[in-house]
């Protein structure tokens, strides 16, 4: 693992100077704030926007605090997930394409250290972005809707964080194997959507899929109970380790040229 510390330092400075450490948390914060705000003010907005006849009663059931946080996570599952894929798509593919990967790998650095430095930075940036976004959403929900069960919130947060890291890890791997960063991002994002759909369709048979973590996080918040997620968690952790090994092999792979 020689070179890991220095590479991690390089990744950190790069995240700062390319503003990744600003825009990714900002995106999650906005998504997090918007959900409780919409839940609170949607009836008012509808009332003021529509030319409804006098005396029309608008009956939108006010969601529970847990439901609002569950919706926040659903939001993270689309725009947030896409942002993660886009933020890390170039992490290896871009460096291979412009030659900086060679610059690093001709020095006495192990490929695993190279990939690991990127993965640790992924975990860190995602924890900052997701932590702020979900924390913000939690705070606004407390303020506007009501107080959810803290235990449920924390467990969901942990499960969803692992899911996000999993998707980020897939991005790192596709980035190591593919030439084009954009292809890496969209294949990963598409894969994540498919995983979520498949899990929704074959819930009872495929509950061990990594996307089970995402489903469990939402159901824990909305219903207070969640299906067993232990299987998903184990599969996800093993997958992450495998993906990183593949990424390390892929990072040193060179096509003609």
């Amino acid at each position: 693992m020689s070179g890991f510390g220095i590479l991690l330092h390089k990744e950190w400075r790069e995240a700062l100077r390319t503003a990744k450490l600003i825009w990714l948390p900002a995106v999650f914060l906005l998504l997090g704030f918007l959900q409780p705000l919409t839940a609170k003010f949607m009836p008012d907005i509808l009332a003021s926007a529509g030319n409804l006849p006098e005396g029309t009663l608008i009956q939108i059931p006010v969601p529970t605090p847990g439901e609002v946080l569950g919706q926040t996570i659903s939001q993270f599952g689309t725009v947030g997930l896409l942002a993660v894929c886009l933020a890390f798509m170039g992490t290896i593919a871009g460096e291979k394409r412009n030659g900086t990967a060679d610059w690093i790998l001709v020095k006495p650095v192990s490929p695993l250290a190279y990939v690991a430095s990127k993965w640790v930075m992924l975990c860190l940036i995602v924890s900052i972005a997701f932590g702020l976004g979900f924390g913000g959403s939690w705070y606004y929900t407390n303020l506007l809707i009501g107080v959810p069960n803290s235990g449920d919130v924390l467990i969901s947060a942990l499960l969803y964080y692992i899911w996000l890291v999993f998707i980020g890890t897939v991005t790192i791997m596709t980035s190591a194997l593919l030439r084009s960063p954009a292809a890496a991002a969209f294949i990963t994002f598409g894969g994540a959507i498919v995983l979520q759909l498949v899990h929704g369709l074959f819930d009872n048979k495929l509950s061990w899929l990594p996307s089970g973590l995402d489903a469990a996080a939402i159901s824990k918040l909305t219903t207070g109970s969640s299906p067993s997620w232990a299987g998903s968690a184990i599969v996800t952790v093993i997958s992450i380790a495998t993906l990183l090994t593949v990424a390390a092999k892929g990072a040193v792979l060179r096509k003609k040229g």
Partner: peptide
């Protein structure tokens, strides 16, 4: 060994000095 490819690539966001230090540190 030291190596310079035909089209040397660097991290544009690093300064020249940072590039040197990073290279040196990676080489031990």
């Amino acid at each position: 060994m030291g190596f310079l490819p035909q089209h040397p690539a660097f991290f544009g966001w690093m300064t020249g000095f940072e590039t040197m230090v990073t290279a040196g540190r990676l080489c031990g």
